[in-house]
Simulated scan of single mutants.
Amino acid sequence: MSTTLTASFDTRREAEMTVERLVQQFGIERTDIFIATAGDENSAGVERAGSDTEAGSPSPEERDDSELEGRVTVSVDLEDEAVAGEVRSAFAEFDAAEVTES
């Protein structure tokens, strides 16, 4: 039986780091992982992080153009229930909120 685990993240960086952990450490196929905004608007999360913060040298100007219109969600389709614990662990590692299973 297949299961889908979904979690939301405050920043795009947390969502991207979670995806990389799932793919690289747990061998989950990228085609089984989906990233979307929690709402209808384009969003980089609710906080600036990573490349959405101020630029480094040689462009030290601060950035204020990040779309902060809501959380970023990551959904993972699983065929193997044994992997669900690993996915939940990766979600927790990167401060996921609102983890649901369907």
Rank of each mutant, 00 (worst) to 15 (best):
E79I: 06
D65G: 06
R88E: 15
A55H: 13
M1E: 11
S43R: 01
F26W: 13
A90I: 12
A84M: 12
S66W: 00
D77Q: 05
A82P: 07
S75M: 06
A44G: 00
V83E: 11
A92S: 14
R71H: 05
S59D: 13
Q24V: 12
E101A: 11
V19E: 07
T6R: 14
E67H: 10
T3D: 10
A90T: 09
E29C: 04
S66V: 02
D10W: 06
P60C: 03
A55Q: 13
E62F: 12
A84Y: 12
E93T: 15
E54T: 10
G39H: 02
A96V: 12
A84I: 14
D65K: 04
E81I: 08
R12C: 10
V23R: 10
R21N: 05
T100S: 15
D65S: 07
E16L: 12
A84Q: 15
F34Y: 11
T4F: 04
M17G: 03
A96R: 02
A82S: 15
F34I: 04
S57A: 15
V83S: 09
S102K: 09
A55T: 12
F91E: 02
E86W: 14
A36H: 07
V19N: 01
V76D: 03
V74G: 00
A36V: 06
T37E: 05
A55L: 13
T73D: 05
E20F: 12
M1P: 10
A90D: 08
A7C: 11
L78I: 07
E29M: 06
R21A: 13
V19P: 01
T6V: 07
V46D: 00
D95V: 05
D52N: 11
D64Q: 09
V87T: 04
D95M: 13
D10C: 06
T37S: 06
I28Q: 01
T3C: 07
V74I: 11
Q24S: 11
A36K: 08
R88C: 09
T11N: 01
G50M: 02
V19L: 04
R88G: 08
G56S: 14
L5V: 07
A92N: 15
S8M: 06
T11C: 01
V74Y: 00
V23S: 02
V83W: 06
V87D: 01
V74M: 02
Q24T: 10
E67S: 09
G39Y: 02
T37G: 09
